[in-house]
Design a binder for these strands. Structure first.
Lengths: 358, 358
DNA sequence: CTGAAAGCGCTAACAA
DNA sequence: TTGTTAGCGCTTTCAG
């Protein structure tokens, strides 16, 4: 609700002085000191060509001496621009999202924007509140990776308010918004064909989750590729869960308990794959030698695992950067046609895949 | 400089209408519709007991119907409070910092605050700009993990402006500010004594870096503990570098090239330890069996490495949470005495440490 | 319980 | 080249 979450009590002090008693320095103060108008000071500080060189220097010097600090809240109120990009993610503890966020922050900073961050796990109600609060800060636009199960409806208030919006990585069906992500179906195809090429026939899928588009698409890629190669689909080889380390561990154990064991597994993401590798060791088996594992994303640690993880590279750096760029363009051209940037993933073969043991 | 980084051009539209032509809904609009004053609407939306139940309900309902969204910029200008916490970190791709940030964000959200994020690598100039920009958004306070080599001077403008400030994890000498971090010396002591107890005598230190307090303290703990146990200090066993995966890999190779090889290494952080484990494999050796490694931090992946990493747990979740709480208290009581929260680390023995091979 | 009025710090017409 | 004026959307006295 829009009326929730307002500041419960605001003990304003009147706001004119600082703790130590000095008056806070504003354009007004500088203008008075210099006997010019605030308009002139404002222009001078922004290096406007309208103001005389000499004036500009005097103003800038005094501002520096007095320790003036630009008040973006005030400016925003006037210009209706905050130079803030709102970012809503479900979890930044997941290195995939941390890498995306780092790229976004860096790109934003280069372009003079700052990041207002909100996270919400996979909780729809927390997402609802988080996005509402973000919006109240009037970011120029928002970059969102929606919680699983989000519907177009969750975003209707943002769209109604003409908030520039781009979806990152995950895509909500029926939402006509800019999107930056990966060709997830294709990524799984690459992974599966690699395994099939190695001779695997019974291949599990760990981390199926219909609530998020990335998992839906990866899972579809899995099913379709099996079919295309004439391999049977066995629901016992599919483990449904969020893509976490813990679930990778549980998932591998479950599919290893199937009578007719698989010889390989495709994982929804690298985290799931790491968990699966661990689970394999609990069973006295080793990824690569005894069982093949393919991850997805190629987060930093993937290359350092032992054995190093064969995975599908999703280019977080580029994805994060482009999403920020697309958002900034969307802000500049609100009426431009909707853009979909879909990056082509690449298979990175490392040590966790090998021909099946006879 | 304060005059840099102002918005280059602000193409304000006048700001009264939205793309689709509807007027943006403000307190004013609601007040007119209801033939009450904006003051009443403002109070009603904030559930003030001053306004009659019936009025409150009418106002809140109309606000909801009209899709009213609270404008925090405007409110901030008036109240001098933004409910924003500025967070400055060097790198969120490092899981240690990602875990801290996640805890901070969560705590902030619980307390009705939002996070404005800035990162700066270990670059002092970027940090300078980032902190200046953060400040311009007038956060109620800032949480900072300073770039290596930062001096008290870098923070003087924030302090002069009475910005509530808390240092996280790293501490800058000579700065009288709230601090939340770990007892890093003690952590290394635990690690080193564990190794000495196992029988190791030549123990390397990877990731020495005088520019950050965490490394200085951990290194001191190393030197002192060696001395206390009557073990010689050998500079050839110290590898100086930032605590990254890559440097762990390089560092282990370097100390392994010393004529009188060490049998174990203490690493500045887990990332360095992971790199070292990888470097060991490049030499055909395995952490645990052939060489002992101790990390520091206990990030999520540490438990999942193979072998699982023996490390010093630093309680990121608690540290992040407490730092946010301390900042919120500092904001409420600007004149309260400076607080130092130093958490006691704990040794977590796992698979990468064992008695030295004979 | 409600309204009138002032003002937070800034920018943008428009005038001079 | 500079000044005047108005106002962004909100909160807060102070009166009624």
């Amino acid at each position: 609700m829009t009326t929730d979450g307002l500041p419960p009590e605001s003990n304003a002090t009147g706001g004119l002085r600082m703790g130590s008693g000095r008056a806070r320095v504003t354009l007004q103060i500088i203008a008075e000191q210099l006997a010019v108008s605030t308009a002139t000071v404002s222009l001078a500080l922004r290096n406007s060509p309208l103001v005389a060189e000499a004036t500009r220097l005097r103003v800038q010097q005094l501002a520096r001496e007095m320790g003036y600090s630009y008040n973006r809240s005030a400016a925003s109120l006037r210009t209706d621009r905050t130079n803030i990009l709102g970012v809503g993610f479900h979890d930044i503890t997941n290195p995939y999202f941390a890498e995306l966020l780092a790229a976004i922050e860096e790109t934003a900073a280069e372009r003079g924007r700052s990041i207002l961050l909100a996270t919400y796990g996979e909780k729809l109600d927390r997402q609802e509140r988080a996005l509402t609060t973000l919006k109240e800060y009037r970011p120029d636009g928002m970059l969102v990776c929606a919680a699983g199960g989000s519907t177009a409806e969750s975003f209707s208030h943002l769209i109604a308010a003409d908030m520039p919006l781009v979806q990152l990585s995950r895509e909500i069906p029926g939402l006509e918004l800019d999107f930056v992500g990966s060709d997830d179906r294709h990524g799984t195809e690459l992974a599966l064909e690699h395994l099939i090429g190695l001779g695997h026939r019974r291949i599990a899928f760990l981390g199926e989750n219909q609530l998020i588009s990335t998992s839906r698409n990866r899972y579809e890629g899995y099913c379709d590729t099996l079919a295309r190669h004439g391999l049977p689909f066995d629901p016992a080889l599919v483990y449904s869960a969020h893509g976490t380390r813990e679930n990778g561990l549980k998932g591998i154990q479950q599919v290893l308990d199937v009578a007719d064991q698989p010889t390989a597994a495709i994982c929804f993401n690298d985290l799931t794959a790491f968990g699966a590798m661990l689970g394999l060791r609990h069973r006295g088996r080793e990824a690569g030698a005894d069982f093949s594992i393919v991850g997805c994303d190629d987060v930093q640690e993937a290359a350092q695992w032992y054995p190093a993880l064969t995975t599908v590279r999703n280019f977080q750096e580029e994805m994060g950067r482009r999403s920020a760029e697309i958002l900034i363009r969307r802000i500049a051209e609100p009426a431009a046609p909707v853009r979909r940037i879909v990056l082509k993933p690449e298979l990175v073969v490392r040590g966790t895949t090998a021909p099946p043991k006879r």
